[in-house]
Design a binder for these strands. Structure first.
Lengths: 368, 368
DNA sequence: GTCCTCTATGAATCTAGGA
DNA sequence: TTCCTAGATTCATAGAGGA
């Protein structure tokens, strides 16, 4: 009788945790082919020289952290190739990666991705609606950052929720340029002194779009440069699992507290549109993406009808799902309905039409 | 008596011509440090497999020309590094380059630029207002291309017409994302069969912005991948000199005919908004010398600080003597200060900045 | 409470020229 | 080359604070 040898068990995947340490070491310790998506915001290797002042003589708080210092392009390239290789090992065969950067580093990253066997699907431009100006008038305002979306290999059957992104974008195909504001205000994490907890915190709206578009509920999302945990926070909201890796103690602590405060959206809010739904005529999804309305939040009609907001900007009503217009029309028994004026949400005890939020966005967009 | 040997003359620069041949060979034959700006639209190294059809089954006319075929990244990299080196040799010390590309090649180009010693100034996103949709719904609509603007070296004093671009942008700084339509309609060159003469003809509006922003009238602009000559056409319109290099006979012919039809703008139309830096320098002492300010007169700062004018054009402040800038900076506790806008004097009950007097002097100077 | 003004700040490779 | 000084230069947004 043959003795059945037990195979060594693969180490368990540490889901919804923030792991301490160097991301390359940690990634090498994790089981291969176990992750659906990687979102990475690596150091940009800014090469800043002196100080910079605004015309009013105030000092610009520059990114001068030790983790952004590299001795040369060669050193940065080696670092990049090493972490990209470790990351690729962790991806499932149909997995994909997003990497964000600026002109300082993104060309190194893009070349390294291609050389490592990743297959670029799109480069996506995050167009900042409110970037910092160029104070000395010596260059163009640096008003965007670049994200590269790539699958593990050319053959990969990557996840792409085409219809969900189309729904987020007024019913037309999502483009490769995304206009979103930078992370400020309440969303921006502060330390005990009231200073920004992390110099380069990314907006949740950006991660919302990435995760809605390229993962499904329950997927495992790894962020090897976790920082203050935007990826984890949005993953939790959206019912995805996350794994964070972060070297700095202070960032890990801030991220853990932040994520603990996050309330996941209702499961029903996370179902995204199937492929045959009609086209909404308004960008209602942007209100959700930007956090102006929470998935799961209940909207109220003029005669007390209610409907629940989903993550892709559709509504769930009584035996009825669709755009804000469709659900409103359904309740009214009318052939059509302007959802923007029909639906209201509650703020500080008052019922406010959702059109109020659309006007806020339009005011921003109209300025460009 | 010594015989004076004539030095071999540098070959003359073939201005406003389209040169036939491989761009690397041709560039190597031209005199070094002779060109102000290079605009390059190199082959994109597209990796298209098979044909692409629209939902109605019509065939998309893809870029499959033989000049865009490279067997591997290594071959494309070698080509890129070779032409970038030849181009850099041609640039004057304060020259600059623009290269346009898509995610297929731009990361290779950007890395090669950095490795060759160019210094990236901005990456600029051309955001297409009317891109081709993604027919299969498998990716985001590829709605932009990327341009890299780089100087010959970090030390270069590159040309940047900040005020002209600001004027082009309704009075606010030009950003790194440019929204412009793709080249269609009358502007798109057709061959004898009515088909497009070149698969990737760039819009003139794009070159207009590049040349207004980073060259001056009379500058020499080289385009090593001339195609159907958009760079040459816009250069001629704008009173810049061009050198085109193109391998394909049909493109050269189309470009030559096109450029012959171009009528340059009037010289007066080419004057762009000037910068203050270009205006003649006026020492503060001249205001005293000319009697516009009396020695002993008291100047006032925005927060009530005061200083007394001396006969030699220095100011006496609170335990501090120096130039208008130094005393202003001292009061503000700032590293620097523009004394011309900081200090005010009283005329007819109103506080007037001393810059008003400088403008009077400059107006007089301008009359001669 | 409302409206308005003022202030602070954000991934930034941010000067030019003469002595 | 280095040093020194003149002097040119900002947009969108959030939040505080005053009228």
């Amino acid at each position: 009788m043959a003795v059945r040898t037990k195979l060594p068990e693969a180490p368990a995947l540490p889901l919804n945790q923030i792991l301490a340490g160097d991301c390359i070491d940690v990634m090498r310790s994790l089981p291969e082919a176990s992750v659906d998506l990687i979102f990475a915001d690596p150091p940009y290797n800014l090469q800043l020289k002196g100080e910079l002042h605004r015309p009013d003589n105030s000092r610009v708080d520059a990114v001068d952290d030790h983790w952004d210092q590299f001795s040369s392009f060669a050193a940065y390239d080696k670092f990049t190739r090493d972490w990209l290789a470790a990351a690729r090992r962790l991806l499932k065969p149909n997995g994909a990666i997003w990497v964000i950067g600026s002109y300082h580093n993104i060309f190194r990253v893009g070349s390294a991705l291609q050389d490592a066997g990743y297959w670029i699907l799109n480069d996506v431009v995050w167009r900042k609606s409110n970037p910092m100006p160029n104070f000395r008038g010596k260059r163009l305002t640096n008003a965007h950052e670049t994200m590269i979306w790539a699958s593990k290999s050319e053959a990969a059957k990557y996840t792409f929720n085409y219809d969900a992104l189309k729904a987020l974008n007024e019913g037309v195909q999502m483009r490769s340029d995304w206009v979103l504001p930078i992370c400020t205000g309440h969303e921006r994490l502060k330390d005990a002194n009231g200073d920004k907890a992390h110099p380069t915190q990314k907006p949740e709206s950006l991660l919302h779009r990435v995760l809605v578009g390229s993962t499904n509920p329950g997927d495992v999302v790894l962020d090897p440069f976790f920082g203050t945990g935007t990826t984890g926070a949005v993953a939790k909201m959206l019912g995805r699992q996350f794994i964070g890796i972060e070297r700095e103690d202070s960032y890990r602590e801030a991220a853990a507290q932040r994520i603990a405060r996050v309330r996941p959206y209702d499961a029903s809010a996370l179902e995204t549109s199937g492929s045959k739904r009609a086209e909404p005529r308004v960008p209602f999804g942007q209100l959700v993406e930007r956090g102006m309305l929470r998935p799961g939040e209940v909207l109220v009609g003029p005669r007390g009808s209610t409907a629940k907001v989903r993550a892709d900007g559709t509504l769930v009503g009584d035996r009825m799902t669709g755009s804000i217009h469709q659900v409103g029309a359904h309740y009214e028994g009318a052939p059509s309905c302007n959802g923007w004026t029909y639906w209201h949400f509650k703020r500080e005890g008052k019922m406010v039409p959702i059109d109020f939020l659309r006007q806020q966005i339009r005011a921003e967009l109209g300025e460009h």
